[in-house]
């Protein structure tokens, strides 16, 4: 359990990986907007989005399979919405005489499927190329304007990064507690779902208590290192806006223009 990598970050040395995380988050949002801008049944716009995904995947040096795997998580949702469209969309003409599947239903099903799949692929590229720590950093940068309304951006960002920092520690701890309870005869693998859920209580309670103890010690350690909130604090980590970010912006602008342009053509 020790080598569990949380999130799905795929480390590589690429132009996409080295981009500013804040820019990457914004570009991902722009990409999703582009996917939604594709007018109904103008499938060429989707082709442009797919092309963008393929290009980014190549630039990021990520195997295609890794990106495609992300669709697995939403496959049920995709199939359900497609089937519902096929069965219940009564617009248009039936595909065969007396049939209940209409041409509009079929197109809508395909359209919705493409939209969801492309959206997931784009979002996956963000999490594949950005480590959780960088993501938290990017979110902090983007939240910065909220300082104007006195939102504690620094504190929020610190909470996020401490949470990320403690994930491997708590996984280790869970592992240890499970082993300790098993050594005393605890049974986690048999019985119905309620029985199994109940068996987890002797794991969760020690975990919760030790988390409080850890929090207490961490607070002391932070105090000892002169932590006093965001006042007068400087920031060591710097994520500059680089050439790759500029190219990213141009690329995404190109995609949006392309989608708008292709919205004029119908197959």
């Amino acid at each position: 359990m020790k080598d569990v990598t949380f999130g799905q970050y795929y480390p590589a040395n690429s132009i996409v990986h080295s981009m500013n995380p804040a820019v990457k988050i914004l570009l991902t949002i722009a990409y999703i907007v582009a996917v939604f801008m594709v007018k109904q049944f103008y499938f060429l716009g989707f082709a442009a989005c797919l092309l963008a995904v393929i290009l980014i995947t190549i630039l990021a040096k990520i195997p295609f399979l890794k990106v495609l795997k992300s669709v697995k998580a939403v496959i049920f949702f995709v199939l359900l919405s497609a089937i519902l469209q096929l069965l219940f969309n009564k617009n248009g003409t039936p595909l065969w005489k007396g049939g209940f599947i209409t041409d509009v239903g079929l197109l809508t099903a395909g359209f919705i499927t493409a939209r969801i799949v492309l959206m997931v692929l784009g979002a996956t590229l963000l999490t594949l190329t950005t480590s959780p720590v960088d993501l938290a950093d990017g979110i902090e940068t983007l939240l910065f304007p909220l300082k104007l309304i006195k939102f504690p951006v620094h504190e929020f960002a610190l909470i996020m990064s401490i949470a990320l920092r403690f994930i491997p520690t708590l996984i280790d701890e869970t592992d240890r507690i499970i082993k300790a309870q098993k050594a005393r005869g605890a049974d986690f693998d048999s019985g119905n779902i309620f029985k199994r859920a109940k068996a987890l209580i002797p794991v969760l309670i020690p975990l919760l208590i030790s988390s409080f103890r850890r929090a207490d010690e961490l607070a002391d350690a932070m105090d000892a290192r002169c932590y006093a909130g965001s006042k007068k604090r400087t920031k060591y980590k710097k994520t500059p806006f680089t050439v790759s970010d500029f190219f990213g912006l141009v690329f995404m602008a190109g995609l949006i223009v392309g989608v708008v342009f292709l919205n004029g053509f119908i197959i």
Partner: peptide, 12 residues
């Protein structure tokens, strides 16, 4: 402090 895991703030 005693426990190295409980006095670290950052992941890097």
């Amino acid at each position: 402090f005693q426990n190295p895991d409980n006095q670290m703030v950052a992941s890097i």
